[in-house]
Computed example of a mutant assay.
Amino acid sequence: MLKLLLMLMLFGVAYLIQAVLYEKYGMKSVSYRCHFDREEVTEGDCFLLIEEIENRGFLPLPWIRSEYAVSQNLDFAGAHSTVTGGTRFVSSLFFLRSRSRIRRQWHVRALLRGEYTIEKVLLVSSDLFGTARSSMSAEDAGGVLVVLPKCYETEMPLLHSFNRTMGDEPVRYSFVNDPALLAETRIYTGYEPLRRIDWKTSARMGVLMVRNEEPVQNQKICICFTIQKSEFGRRYVSEDVSEHTVRVMAELFRQFTNQMLSFQVQSNCTVHGEFFSMMCDGSPAGYLRLLRNLSALDSEPDEMLRNCVTIPNGVRLILVAPYLSEDIRRLKAEHPSADVILTSPCETDDMNFIPIYEEVETDETE
């Protein structure tokens, strides 16, 4: 009996000592980092989420669980996760010996464009007996993952008309003259540059003649788009159609960039709190900036498109929308020559309306 009491006392003392040690030093020497292996991907791409945990102390940790939250649009393969209210909660379990380090990789797939972060990272552990639990928040949760929209690869009938009509056009005055467009020849006065002398005409006329070149300027393109799903309190298209509109915009930007066309983009959608508006010079860098803005685009604008855009005179106007709303009808009435790209079915005889849509169901609920 005495031996039993002695053993119980020793066990109680050992339990108290380890409980105090784990409470004071258990999580003190633990460092944790969770981050993506890339900063930028495209919709549908697979990448890695990396967890790195290290125990620099002398106490082994029988178990330690990491818990963090990400968007439901990041699909984890093989991870223990649950989705609640648009947020995916992921947990991972580790056993850490003293002075050891573990690196774990999760395969993740980006389902939808956007800017994503790892949030609410929490580490939970306990002592050897699993009775005294302790927790801590991790400070390093990686940076921002930018998921660019995927281009909806399709033929753009609109581009054929641009191939015929876009480029340089003669104007009454410009700072730039086109040497390929000859307006007339006249007698050399001594003030013109020698490169403008027309030697063949000079030999035929017997006096020095110079070329008068046609002043030109580039035709301008203005793209105004919206991805709004509802109007006057009624929802007309689904979230899928709205996102399809973004992918059509990405493809339109790509094809314009391939033709090195400069264009202006305006929208009633916001990017980081400001209405989307920018100029693109037709360069790959400008195209990448457009895609990054599309990735951060709000999916439900608060203002009508016609109240948020300024359309200059003399531009080739392109309107892009998920459906033919009253807002688009009014803009079309104000600019009859505008081309309209709709990403859901629409019955119209107007040749300027271009349907580019997928076979998806529309949501017509009130």
Rank of each mutant, 00 (worst) to 15 (best):
L2W: 13
K3N: 11
K3Y: 14
L6G: 06
L8D: 02
L8K: 07
I17Q: 04
I17D: 05
E23D: 14
K28I: 05
V30P: 01
Y32V: 15
R38M: 06
R38W: 04
V41P: 00
I50A: 00
E51N: 08
E52A: 04
E52T: 09
G57P: 03
L59R: 00
P60N: 04
P62E: 04
R65T: 13
A69P: 00
Q72A: 15
D75C: 12
A77Y: 11
T84H: 09
G86S: 02
F89H: 09
F89L: 12
F95E: 06
R99P: 01
R103T: 15
R104P: 04
R104W: 03
R104G: 02
H107S: 12
H107A: 10
G114S: 02
T117D: 09
E119F: 03
S125K: 03
S125A: 15
A132W: 13
R133Q: 11
M136W: 05
E139F: 09
A141H: 07
A141Q: 08
L148T: 01
H160E: 15
M166S: 08
M166C: 07
F175D: 14
D178K: 01
A180N: 13
A180Q: 11
A183F: 13
T185A: 04
Y188A: 05
E192P: 02
L194T: 11
T201M: 10
N212C: 10
P215E: 01
K220S: 10
Q228I: 08
F232Y: 13
G233W: 05
S238L: 06
E239N: 13
V241T: 14
S242Y: 05
V248N: 04
E251M: 10
F256T: 05
L261H: 04
S262D: 07
V265A: 01
H272C: 08
M278Q: 14
L291N: 03
A296K: 07
L297W: 01
E300D: 14
E300Q: 12
D302R: 09
E303P: 03
N307K: 11
V309T: 03
G314K: 02
I318S: 04
I318E: 00
L324D: 09
I328S: 03
R329F: 11
R330Q: 15
V340F: 05
L342F: 07
T348V: 11
F353E: 00
F353I: 15
I354Y: 01
E358N: 13
V360M: 15
D363F: 13
